[in-house]
């Protein structure tokens, strides 16, 4: 029993979580850190329990922004990526755009987006989709190109249509890299959603709750919002991981044994 526990990943993750929370709590109390700088976990818990509906509602709003934004980005990237994978000159020509999206700080141009698309959801979803497109496009192009050349020859030998090659060969070949990109994009998209909610003059969402907490100097609400955002991020990662496990069960990355 003890031996089994010693080998269980979940057991050690639980130990690590308890240790982290204990250290955090002790550090804040011993050093007497101000509420606004860092709140101990016990107070985050009680702040959350004071008004759980408020936080849960805002988690839902932000989760929707994240999921809708990522879905749009994925659809756009698959179509765009498939095109780029097929036409090399177009791939080269699109590099400046993709790199520009990647390196330009979205913090800086969010107000222009709000001015263009208006306040609230449209601007938020646009930003999430916009910043997550490059990683998805790179994953699509690279993954589709990685399709087994012998399998491509096999498809050609019976005159498979472009659509059949795309759907039955290239897209499944791109799944592993798409999932890697998805894990990265969940974190990026959540940050973008949180920031855009605060900046897009929306009326709800975790980012807006956090912005108001800062404006009204409410340290405990701010930190509870931050932790709620982190929990949403973890849940999203877990969701991607579970989806990856079920869809990529055939892939070497998902196997425990050598073969």
């Amino acid at each position: 029993m003890i031996g089994r526990l010693r080998n269980s990943a979940a057991f050690w993750a639980a130990i690590g979580t308890v240790a982290l929370l204990g250290f955090w709590e002790a550090f804040v109390r011993v050093r007497d850190v101000r509420k606004f700088v860092l709140l101990p976990p016990s107070e985050i818990g009680s702040t959350f329990l004071d008004n759980p509906g408020f936080y849960v509602d805002n988690i839902w709003v932000t989760a929707r922004h994240l999921v809708v934004g990522l879905s749009i980005a994925l659809v756009v990237s698959l179509a765009f990526g498939a095109l780029l994978a097929a036409v090399r000159p177009l791939e080269h020509a699109s590099q400046p755009l993709l790199v520009l999206i990647l390196v330009t700080p979205w913090v800086a141009y969010i107000s222009s987006i709000v001015l263009w698309l208006g306040r609230g959801t449209p601007s938020i979803v646009f930003l999430v989709a916009f910043v997550t497109v490059p990683a998805f496009v790179y994953a699509t192009v690279g993954g589709m190109r990685s399709a087994d050349p012998a399998a491509r020859e096999l498809f050609a030998s019976i005159h498979a249509s472009r659509w059949e090659v795309l759907w039955r060969l290239r897209l499944p070949s791109a799944l592993p890299s798409l999932f890697t990109a998805a894990r990265f994009n969940v974190g990026l998209g959540l940050a973008a959603a949180y920031f855009a909610e605060g900046a897009a003059l929306s009326t709800d969402g975790l980012g807006e709750a956090g912005r108001r907490a800062v404006a009204f100097n409410e340290g405990s609400i701010l930190w509870t919002t931050i932790l709620c955002t982190a929990v949403l991020g973890i849940l999203s990662q877990v969701a991607v991981l579970l989806l990856e496990r079920s869809l990529l069960h055939w892939h070497a990355s998902q196997r425990r044994t050598a073969r």
Binding site: D148, A150, E153, L154, S157, I158, E164, R168, P172
Partner: peptide, 29 residues
């Protein structure tokens, strides 16, 4: 579809089962 090609590497699709792989050329075109 007058040619059944057997390439040097088996070129099986890893996401398809054995039976689905065996049906691959029937499923296309």
């Amino acid at each position: 579809k007058r040619f059944g090609l057997v390439p040097q590497s088996p070129a099986l699709l890893p996401w398809r089962t054995v039976e689905a792989n065996a049906r691959l050329l029937q499923d296309i075109n």
